[in-house]
């Protein structure tokens, strides 16, 4: 189980706060952070050896969200949580193209997002235990 965090290097101070928050709350998890689109793109092209990855994508501007949509093919089938710049119809409509498991907004507290992440990671642990008990990999 791994968290892949994308927070652009030029993101506002909220990006830094968010990154710190995730690192503090999910100390037991391996977290890989990307701060540039190129770095993130390269990572998406690689094969992951992890059974399950959760992608948390922080987009604090419409332009950044738009740029992220150029990677949508590489994100196909991934489990995505999105942080959106605003709650306008145009923004949420773009967000739905990522088929996110959950999304919230930059100006929200991230309590709910953390609760979702906790549930998802616990779920994974359960699946893993069941799969091991069944003799799976």
């Amino acid at each position: 189980m791994k968290l892949i965090l994308f927070v652009h290097q030029n993101a506002s101070s909220k990006g830094t706060t968010f990154r710190k928050l995730i690192k503090q709350n999910f100390k037991g998890l391996e977290i890989e952070t990307f701060q540039t689109f190129n770095g993130f793109k390269t990572r998406l092209k690689q094969v992951s050896l992890y059974d399950q990855e959760i992608f948390v994508l922080f987009t604090d501007s419409k332009d950044r969200l738009k740029e992220l949509t150029s990677l949508i093919d590489l994100l196909e089938g991934k489990r995505i949580l999105l942080i959106l710049p605003d709650d306008s119809n145009a923004t949420t409509s773009v967000a739905h193209h990522f088929f996110p498991r959950y999304f919230t907004y930059v100006n929200d507290t991230y309590d709910d997002l953390c609760a979702v992440l906790i549930k998802m990671t616990q779920q994974e642990k359960k699946i893993k235990i069941v799969s091991n008990n069944n003799g799976g990999n």
Binding site: T92, S93, H96, F99, P100, R101, Y102, D112, A115, V116, I118, K119, M120, Q123
Partner: peptide, 15 residues
């Protein structure tokens, strides 16, 4: 129009 996903396994009950 949009295809909107709700993943019932990911959300805590209160949400």
């Amino acid at each position: 129009s949009d295809f909107v996903v709700l993943d019932c396994t990911s959300l805590p009950e209160y949400l």
